[in-house]
Design a protein around this nucleic acid. Structure first.
Lengths: 117, 117
DNA sequence: CGGCTCAGTTACCAACAGGTTACCGCAGAA
DNA sequence: TTCTGCGGTAACCTGTTGGTAACTGAGCCG
């Protein structure tokens, strides 16, 4: 008897995950959102916050996030030019996701440590 | 759509996000978790659920998830070999994250449609 | 004037993840 | 006997991505 695909279950609704993950895709995007969460932050501050990320990638991510409507970019016409990035409302809606990711990640990390020990 | 979240190599020391994202990293991991959420599911069923993912990648993801303790792998010694995958408790703890990702994704999608209209 | 900072941009490059194809052993069906 | 389905694995190829280094250009400082 050949095995059949079981259909006697509630099918998950059409999965929008792929659409959604485009907004979190790319290295460091969650980190950037996290560091923007307390409030507006300048480019060089973000560089300082996440020193392992290169300027190029930071720019790329911020541009992408701006396109997606997750951040606002304010250019301050000060003497040393200064650019502030700020989470939009939509960007702030991602914070619970990131918080959840962090809490689960911590739990998994603890688990690994227990196994290692 | 490719749905890639890169597994970042060296994470920033202070921030646990990178550690956490390793568990969601790799293409299709969130989708797989989602399709496992209603209950155990066989390999070929998952292939049917997510036809765009290749067998190789599906195997890779399931193996990684098994290593991370997110899924259990049950080999049924039936005549056509059958392998069931099942979310562990830890894996189920990821579901709120995925639900959050989905809800935000839907919202962003609506927003894009409004802009396009 | 030289050099510094801020906020990038551009060109080039290596690594790696994911896709494709082929193949395996086994059992039951035709 | 051959064929198919299951659950993979191995070898190979390609595209993307993120890193590095060098550059810009305005404004200020000394």
């Amino acid at each position: 008897m050949a095995l059949k695909v079981r259909k006697n279950r509630i099918p998950p609704p059409a999965c929008p995950i792929s659409d959604c993950m485009r907004f979190l895709g790319g290295a460091w995007t969650p980190n950037i959102i996290w560091y923007l969460s307390p409030g507006p932050r300048r480019f060089s501050e973000l560089r300082h916050d996440i020193p392992v990320v290169s300027a190029k990638v930071l720019t790329q991510r911020l541009r992408e996030m701006e396109e997606h409507g997750l951040v606002l970019r304010h250019v301050m016409p000060t003497s040393p030019p200064s650019v502030e990035y700020e989470l939009t409302e939509l960007g702030q809606e991602l914070l619970p996701v990131i918080a959840a990711i962090m809490s689960v990640g911590k739990r998994l990390k603890r688990r690994r440590e227990e196994i290692a020990a």
